[in-house]
Design a protein around this nucleic acid. Structure first.
Length: 445
RNA sequence: UCCUCGGUAGCUCAACAGGUAGAGCGGCCGGCUGUUAACCGGUUGGUUGCAGGUUCGAGUCCUGCCCGAGGAGCCA
């Protein structure tokens, strides 16, 4: 048997005989000639079997292969512009073939299917080319996140997933039984990170987050992944600078290392190429002005109704979508009304009705990928806010402590991994940006 | 929780005004030396989401329920 190689490295082996281990993606039988589309997890390649070039039993074995049958195939790597693989332009002239298993009739065909059917078969769907490409980009996004943070003085601090109380008090939590006491699945590691910065300066947590929201849209999952950096001695301006460097690095890394996958997804990468600092920064008040202007100018009665908003309201997705259409790059919206945001956000100097929060909205209608803020550093103000938000002080005693022992201005943010992946890939459903999505109506498979 | 749309073969869909449930793909058999979701011929394949009602007759009309999708609110 020739050397076992991986399809992603196939270009190094032109003219050599190699062995591939993989699965049959599709087969075209032309009588005395068969085309086997084979994938091995790292790529896709066309293997050509000529009746006259191989022993009769090898040709017969190829003819028996059903979709998704597992196989070990040996042949000579050739360059051919007609070959459709990933990477394109290479094919294997088969000399030998061993069947590992003949697959049962495979439910997913290389044609269109409905969403419900595909999600019921998610365990198989991830083998398909588009899903494969998206999830490879996801892995790169995650690696870029860690690379950038680790390279900029951040240290990874894992925060608990089982937590005693609401972090922000507003969103719905998944409740679980903790030896007879109620406990909840984490919806943010932020509060713990605020403790961690006093030990380590710059930290991040990265893990799954759980929201029992009854959200039924393409932008929501009940379980999703979030990276949450937190930085000591950092104000709102410093936070925005970090965010734009961070997001730029993630996007540029994907463009550089996952060009092939983005091409397979037919992602127009020109908008992504424009992602570099500085990102435009507009205040909440300016955003309201822009929305008011859009409402005046639009002929669309329905849109006008959707964009209705009064000062003090948070933006809904229609607002975000319309705002981001006006910008080529991700855009910062800062200075939201205090009452629309969480209790821990530092008030704007001289304008207590506004807080030092900032969201980052991705362009092309993708909307919020980051939410962040400068945190309250004064213990008395924090205690007052807990009261105003009707939160139990006892549960936050440790959190108030952080403001008693060397309190400093500090800031942090959370970036949603699936939303970032969806934006970079140009896909419109979050459920395709995670291997096994959890949504309101789906916990299987 | 609310609004909208949908549920017919393994999959994607069709079925006029209520009148014998059909096509493509897949599977199976056969043909083909450059296919790109191949093509050609044949063949296989149905409790029309569930329950009830109207009718000589219901996939189609009515009532209730179940399930799914898109969106709103909420959020990353």
């Amino acid at each position: 048997m020739a050397e076992v190689v991986r399809i992603e490295n196939i270009a190094r082996y032109v003219g050599q005989e190699v062995t591939l281990q993989g699965w049959l993606y599709n087969r075209t039988d032309k009588g005395k000639l068969q085309f086997l589309q084979v994938r091995d997890g790292t790529g896709f390649i066309q293997c050509v079997v000529f009746r006259k070039d191989v022993p009769e039993e090898v040709f017969a074995a190829a003819a028996r292969l059903t979709q998704e049958s597992s196989l070990v195939v040996t042949g000579v790597v050739r360059q051919d512009p007609r070959a459709p693989g990933v990477p394109p332009g290479y094919e294997l002239s088969v000399t030998d073939l061993k069947v590992v298993q003949i697959a049962d009739e495979y439910p997913i065909q290389p044609k269109e299917h409905g969403v419900d059917f595909l999600l019921d078969h998610r365990h198989l769907w991830i083998r398909s080319r588009r899903q494969w490409a998206v999830l490879r980009v996801r892995a790169t996004v995650i690696r870029a996140i860690r690379d950038w943070l680790d390279g900029h003085g951040f240290i990874n601090m894992d925060t608990p997933i089982i937590t005693p109380a609401a972090c922000e008090g507003t969103t719905t939590l998944f409740q679980t039984d903790y030896f007879g006491e109620p406990a909840y699945l984490s919806q943010s590691g932020q509060l713990y990170n605020e403790a961690n910065i006093y030990a380590f300066g710059r930290v991040y947590c990265f893990g799954p987050t759980f929201r029992a929201e009854k959200s039924k849209t393409r932008r929501h999952l009940t379980e999703f992944w979030m990276v949450e950096p937190e930085i000591a001695f950092c104000d709102l301006d410093g936070l925005m600078e970090i965010e734009e460097q961070f997001v730029t690095y993630i996007v540029q890394t994907c463009l550089r290392e996952r060009a092939q996958e983005l091409a397979l997804l037919e992602r127009d990468t020109r908008p992504l190429e424009k992602v570099e600092p500085p990102f435009p920064r507009i205040s909440y008040d300016e955003a309201l002005d822009i929305l008011a202007r859009i409402r005046e100018e639009t002929e669309d009665e329905e849109l006008r109704e959707l964009l209705k908003i009064e000062w003090g309201d948070d933006f809904g997705s229609p607002h975000e979508t319309e705002l981001t259409k006006r910008f080529e790059k991700p855009v910062f919206v800062y200075g939201y009304p205090t009452r629309a945001k969480a209790f821990y956000m530092e008030p704007w100097p001289g304008r207590p009705e506004v807080c030092k929060s900032v969201d980052l909205l991705a362009p092309e209608g993708y909307g919020e990928i980051i939410g962040g803020s400068e945190r309250i550093s004064d213990p008395d103000l924090l205690v007052q806010r807990l009261k105003e938000w009707n939160l139990p002080r006892e549960a936050f005693e440790w959190y108030i402590d952080l403001r008693r022992y060397g309190s400093v201005p500090h800031s942090g943010f959370g970036l949603g991994v699936e939303r970032t992946v969806a934006w970079i890939c140009g896909i419109d459903h979050l459920r395709e940006a995670i291997p096994f999505p959890r949504t309101l109506k789906r916990v299987y498979p």
